[in-house]
Design a protein around this nucleic acid. Structure first.
Lengths: 195, 195
DNA sequence: CACCATTTGTTGATTTATCAACTAATGCGT
DNA sequence: ACGCATTAGTTGATAAATCAACAAATGGTG
């Protein structure tokens, strides 16, 4: 994965960077391969050498960023998003790369980000639930989807609204909500929060 | 010249940029080809594909910048450095690219910049003297060398002292000195300035 | 609708960059 | 002076990028 010919890395990066730049300037559908190649200073054919078309480029671009996110925020094996530290890293990472994620999230009509993000969290949350043992009255798949939707939705909300709160506040609030559904060991004692 | 394969332009540029970066950090003699290749993100062999060795790289780097200077400051054919406008463009250009020129000028022991600059001005000044007709009592070659040394020396002085005056002041002062040796038509009337 | 320009993909021949492997040279410390 | 490690160049096989030329699709304008 990391032992590729230098040229393909450079070309891919140049093309992706060019694509992102164009995405920040105009609507996705209006972007042409010619523009991308020109902006990337790459022959048009080279684009097709790496990407099937615009859409494939958009998807791979998303995936690349998503992998970076995982690599940076959840260095532990089996991407654990279930510690406060990891959560904070993630929010801060998104904040640093807001230029990308806000573009990807605000371009209406492609739920790619949401889908990929959900897929990533699906596994992470599922494994976590296995490890802590779930209340017998709760269906696992339903609980997973509930938590994943909540998490991704919260992230999207935060990004698309230009991060109205600092990452630390978001993590704190999110953590409290997780405690309420009793899927985390409470920080302090075992007092029931909804009595 | 400008219709080359994209790859060679990119490679040459990357290598030259890397070289300049290293020049700003350490002494020329201590720079290795390995460092250059690594900094440029290029295979070591690629360096040798474009440059014979360190010294060739240093020279070509100088020439490239020099050609850029000429192209930007003296767009007229036969590089005329004999108008106030061209002079101002030149000083301002040097100011913009001070990062390069101050490095090249302060690296002791290689008069490459001075030599190339003089060569460029030699021709320019020589042609100018032909066009305005020289005082019979003055030898042309001597006059040329006098003016060229003065000009280049002034440039070096300005750059190496971190441009203590704005470009406009330098041009104004330089122009007045040129007037004093009566190789320029005075801006205002024909009054003798040294009477 | 028809026209025209642009874009889209594809192809094959060519050039360039990459990599690994090698020898020679240089330098550095013991 | 002797090893020992790094650097300097070189080489040949391979992979990638370039370019030009192509046919097909698209999209706006009269």
């Amino acid at each position: 994965m990391s032992k590729m010919d230098r040229r393909i890395q450079k070309s891919r990066q140049a093309i992706m960077d060019a694509f992102m730049k164009l995405m920040s300037e105009q609507d996705f559908e209006n972007i042409t391969i010619n523009q991308i190649a020109e902006e990337a200073n790459v022959n048009r054919g080279t684009v097709y050498l790496h990407f099937a078309d615009k859409y494939d480029l958009r998807d791979q671009c998303t995936d690349a960023h998503m992998n970076e996110l995982i690599r940076n925020c959840m260095p532990e094996e089996k991407g654990q998003l279930t510690s406060k530290a990891a959560l904070l890293r993630t929010f801060e990472y998104l904040q640093r790369h807001a230029s990308f994620y806000s573009i990807m999230l605000t371009s209406r009509g492609n739920p790619i980000f949401r889908n990929r993000m959900e897929a990533v969290l699906q596994q992470s949350v599922s494994e976590h639930l296995d490890s802590i043992g779930l209340d017998r009255t709760l269906y696992k798949d339903i609980t997973v989807q509930f938590l994943v939707s909540a998490g991704v939705g919260l992230l999207e909300w935060w990004i698309t609204r230009s991060m109205p709160y600092p990452a630390s506040v978001m993590v704190e609030q999110f953590w409290r909500l997780l405690e309420r559904v009793q899927l985390q060991v409470p920080d302090e004692g075992h007092k029931k929060v909804w009595e």
